[in-house]
Simulated assay, not measured.
Amino acid sequence: MAAAVQPRLAPAEAAALTRRITLASTCVAGLLVAIKAAVWAISGSVALLASAADSGLDLLASLLTFFAVRYAAAPPDAEHRFGHGKAEAFASLMQAGLVFASAALVGREAIHNLLEPHEVRQEGLAVAVMLVSTVMTAGLIAAQGYVLKRTSSVAVAGDRAHYATDLASNAVALLGIGATALMGWNGLDALAALVVTALLLWGAVSVFREAASQLMDRELPPAERARIVELVTADPSLTDVHQLRTRASGPYVHMQMHVDLDPALSLQQAHAAVVAAEKRILAEFPSADIIIHPDPRGAAEPHGGAFAETPLGKRGLNEDLRD
């Protein structure tokens, strides 16, 4: 029995959700940049400066995501027959680059202030700003988590990784500023900024890996692949799904497969069985682009091409579903 799979939303519903969450992300980032920059100018906290710089690049990343999800949801055209979904993955790659840049700038400033500590002013105000930032960021992450459960958007996932890192960095900066205020050692503020740098680097690597997986056409998770096979073979006239290939492209899912049918069926009967299988898949994967190639059971010739069946038969690409 295949594991339960969360049904995907129709393209229009998924696009509406991603548009709303990316708009919320952009607004939150803009507000945090303004607040942190203003209070940094008053307090001089390098930890707060690190957090403000991070939020500034998050604003740019959120703007990229804001436009990317809209472009990715555009329908196929004459030059992009598979749609524009990979725009989301490209946006995530740019997000990763921005986070790497943010980590470099923050790390440089932290090391400079660790070697030459300076006084942090208005610690109470800086602490208050970080508390507000932490609450706002936590709320946005919760909303993004809800959207991700429904859409699996790699662009929103990248944006959420930014803010998850922000949440951790806010907590670290808050500890650094608070420790500086209580203990009077300004170096703690710079050490907190170094920890923020490490968190930024970790977040950038995670975003890069997720985007690269989609750009490299990584298969859907095994549970979803198994569910596709289960939906196709719900009709006993369709058996032995093989050469199943799947990939995600932004809000869309592309899948192709071969399936065995009774060779005694007429062309019309075989077509009807395949169309019915496509409808079953679309009920749970409404954004899917599906190609099903019927083979006469027991009488099919091996297929050639760049991704031909292996000499071992119909294994290889489907071992994760059969073992």
Rank of each mutant, 00 (worst) to 15 (best):
L93W: 08
G158H: 03
L105W: 13
A308L: 09
L174Q: 01
E88V: 05
Y163M: 03
K149R: 04
P311Q: 07
A173E: 02
G44K: 01
D159F: 09
L265T: 00
L244Q: 06
S43A: 10
G44T: 01
A10I: 02
Q95S: 08
H84E: 14
L188V: 09
A300C: 04
L57P: 12
A24F: 13
L261C: 06
A212Q: 11
A128I: 00
L238I: 10
L267E: 07
T165K: 12
A73K: 11
G56M: 13
P221M: 07
H242I: 04
D262T: 03
D323H: 14
P286W: 01
L188I: 04
Q256I: 06
H271M: 05
L131K: 08
L23K: 10
A142T: 07
G158W: 04
L98C: 11
D240W: 14
P117E: 08
D260Q: 08
H80Y: 11
L317V: 14
V120A: 04
I177F: 00
S153M: 15
L9F: 01
A110R: 07
V5H: 02
A143M: 05
V135L: 04
A234S: 12
A211P: 06
V232N: 00
G305T: 11
E79I: 12
E319G: 07
L59K: 07
L60S: 15
E79Q: 12
T65S: 13
I42S: 15
D235M: 01
H162F: 14
V120C: 05
L9T: 01
M130R: 02
H254K: 14
A164T: 13
V275S: 12
F100Q: 10
L199P: 15
D240Y: 05
T26G: 14
K36N: 05
H242Q: 03
M136D: 08
R245Y: 13
E219C: 15
V106A: 04
N186R: 14
S266E: 02
S266G: 03
Q214R: 11
M183P: 07
Y71A: 15
T246Y: 04
W202R: 13
S152Y: 08
A164P: 12
T239R: 02
M1K: 03
L261H: 04
S51N: 14
G85H: 05
G158V: 09
A2P: 15
R245I: 01
S45D: 09
A190L: 07
P117Q: 08
A15E: 04
A276N: 05
Q214C: 15
